[in-house]
Every structure is written in C-alpha cells, then in structure tokens.
Simulated scan of single mutants.
Amino acid sequence: MQLMINNETAQFPAPLSLQQLLELLEQPEKGIALALNRQVISRSLWPQIFLQEGDSVHLFNVVAGG
C-alpha cells in the first residue's frame, strides 16, 4: 500500500494500523504526535485505526515549553 509520510511516498504492507506504522518507522513511543489526512489522532486510537491506500501521515516531535 502506498502512503505519504511527511510528504514522502513510501510502500507498506497492508493491513497496517497507525501503531504498527510507528513501529515499522522505529519511532519512539513518547514524544510523538501524528496527523492522519490532516486530522490529529489521539494516541489511544493508534492501535485501532487502520491505514488505507493513499493516506497521508504527518509525524511531529512534541516539545514541552512555553
């Protein structure tokens, strides 16, 4: 399945949840936020949401401070 990850096209096996995607990309469990098709998704939903062909995922590093 073809996905856009931070504006770069990549191929992944299907089916694939958001949680599995992060594991494949070797992303840390903490300090990451993500948007699926321009909508921020709560971390608690990552294991339950499965990606579809052509989905766009943006990964963000969360930084504390103000």
Rank of each mutant, 00 (worst) to 15 (best):
L3K: 01
V63P: 08
L59H: 02
L24V: 06
L36F: 07
Q11C: 09
Q48F: 13
T9D: 05
P47N: 11
M4S: 15
V63Y: 06
L18F: 02
I49W: 04
P47Q: 10
Q52S: 15
L36N: 05
L21A: 11
L59E: 00
E53D: 13
L34D: 03
A35G: 04
A14N: 10
Q39H: 08
Q48I: 02
L59C: 03
R43Q: 14
P28F: 06
L45T: 11
L24Y: 05
N61A: 10
P28M: 06
M4D: 07
P15L: 07
E29G: 15
L18E: 01
N61C: 09
I5E: 02
L22Y: 02
Q11V: 10
Q48C: 07
E53M: 08
E29C: 11
I32L: 13
L45F: 11
N37T: 04
G54L: 02
N6P: 06
E8R: 15
R43K: 15
V62P: 06
E8D: 09
G65K: 09
F50C: 12
A10G: 09
F60K: 10
L45C: 12
R38K: 15
Q11W: 09
F12V: 14
H58I: 02
Q48V: 08
I5R: 03
Q39N: 07
F60M: 10
E29D: 12
Q20N: 04
N7D: 14
S44K: 11
I41K: 07
Q27Y: 09
M1D: 05
P47H: 11
Q52C: 09
L22N: 05
